[in-house]
Design a protein around this nucleic acid. Structure first.
Lengths: 230, 230
DNA sequence: GATCACTTGTGAAATAATTCACATAAAAAG
DNA sequence: CTTTTTATGTGAATTATTTCACAAGTGATC
């Protein structure tokens, strides 16, 4: 499946793998932009992302920009084009559910605000834990999720609860009107087609096991293989 | 690319997406096994992993097991078959490079030992930080990477250093003989074909941006899309 | 300005992955 | 014992993604 545009504004469809790569490309453009680099080629982008230059060009071609071919891409221009296409410049108000070790790390993670995610609330089911927390961001008991989500106009949630709590947490968030979820728990959440909520699962243990499986292949003198969890 | 078996023991090749899903399937089998469940169907596995049952069956078929069709999968048997195929039962000695906030969380993460990853060393470039750390696992200065990797027979590394340090860190680890890397830094590491080292990149910011891009599609009443970062 | 060494953009071809469809097997129900 | 329901396993068809090949544009050099 892909990024299927239904209105007539800009007709085509971006395949999912291309969309993911465009997000990576954006990060590299941002880096180059900060370094003051004015231009970058598909070859360089390919090296930085671990992708063939053909593929990079194809990905960028889905944006249907009008450029003069010949020299490389103009860094600030392309960055702005990707950014405005996917609205990377608008601030997304977010919350973190589950203020354990990982939740706490994410709460102070300065790259979230840098990427226009403003964490405005935390939630935890343990009252004891909330009382001992010292954070800049207010932390509420889990039963206040519906109230605070609405009051604070929160549209994204980061789930960092233990696996067995993930499904109920997600249902609760979706009922409260959340529009996007990033799930760090060990339980895979599959998006309910009817809800229209976008879910991205990050499965760290799964990725570790995937690495172990790849290494097994190498152990046996099988062909090792380029791979990325992204 | 896939999991290309070159010896003649068991001829076929497992596509990369199937391999990733098999790792997830293993986690679910483990969960069911602990709950005492004896059987599971492709439909149930599909629901738990967010995949169509067809796909689950196809994935499992790559293992070329001999089973009688008709009833579901035998949980402990299938778990053992996947586990021994990919050697999930052998202990992998691992280290963490970069003992910042995330590195520290991963160091005490009890699900790593549960999944047969034994963290036996940490490395950090800041001597000050090392002196103030109180951990059960020894932490060494980064310049001792080659020595300790060999002495402790470490085969996997978790990179949790800042983006700009990731490439040199990886090169250093690979020179020291590491066989697998899981990279949490913001810089994508692409596996050097000649080295034979397996690398899995976990790009949390990229995944967040990917979610934002999907949400943009929904904002516009475009078709939202099932997706997973795994 | 002409030539050379670059570059991008993109239909078309090739490859890869998913889904289908159905033969086959097991267990449950009648 | 026979029928019905519910499974798996897997070639074949379909769909999705990547790669190729090349036309066309750019800027540097002579």
């Amino acid at each position: 499946m892909g990024f299927n545009l239904k209105n007539k504004t800009a007709g085509k469809m971006i395949p999912d793998p291309s969309l993911k790569r465009l997000c990576r490309i954006y990060a590299i453009l941002d880096e180059y932009d900060k370094m003051g680099e004015k231009a970058i080629s598909s070859r360089e982008l390919g090296e930085k992302t671990g992708t063939a230059p053909h593929t990079i060009r194809k990905d960028i071609s889905y944006l249907h920009r009008d450029t003069r071919a010949g020299s490389g891409y103009n860094v600030p221009v392309l960055k702005e084009e990707i950014g405005s296409r996917f609205r990377f410049h608008i601030e997304r108000r977010a919350c973190i559910v589950g203020i354990g070790k990982l939740g706490k790390v994410l709460m102070d993670y300065d790259r979230l605000p840098y990427n226009n995610m403003k964490i405005v609330a935390g939630f935890d089911s343990s009252i004891n834990r909330i009382e001992t927390l010292r954070t800049d961001i207010p932390v509420y008991p889990a039963n206040e999720i519906p109230l605070i989500i609405k009051k604070e106009k929160i549209e994204m949630a980061i789930i960092a609860v233990p696996g067995p709590r993930a499904v109920e947490t997600a249902e609760n968030l979706i009922r409260a009107g959340i529009k996007g979820i990033i799930n760090f728990s060990s339980t895979v959440l599959n998006p309910d087609m009817k809800s229209g909520v976008n879910i991205v699962n990050i499965d760290i243990i799964g990725d570790l096991r995937y690495l172990a499986a790849l290494m097994t292949a190498s152990d046996d003198a099988l062909t090792p293989v380029s791979s990325s969890a992204f």
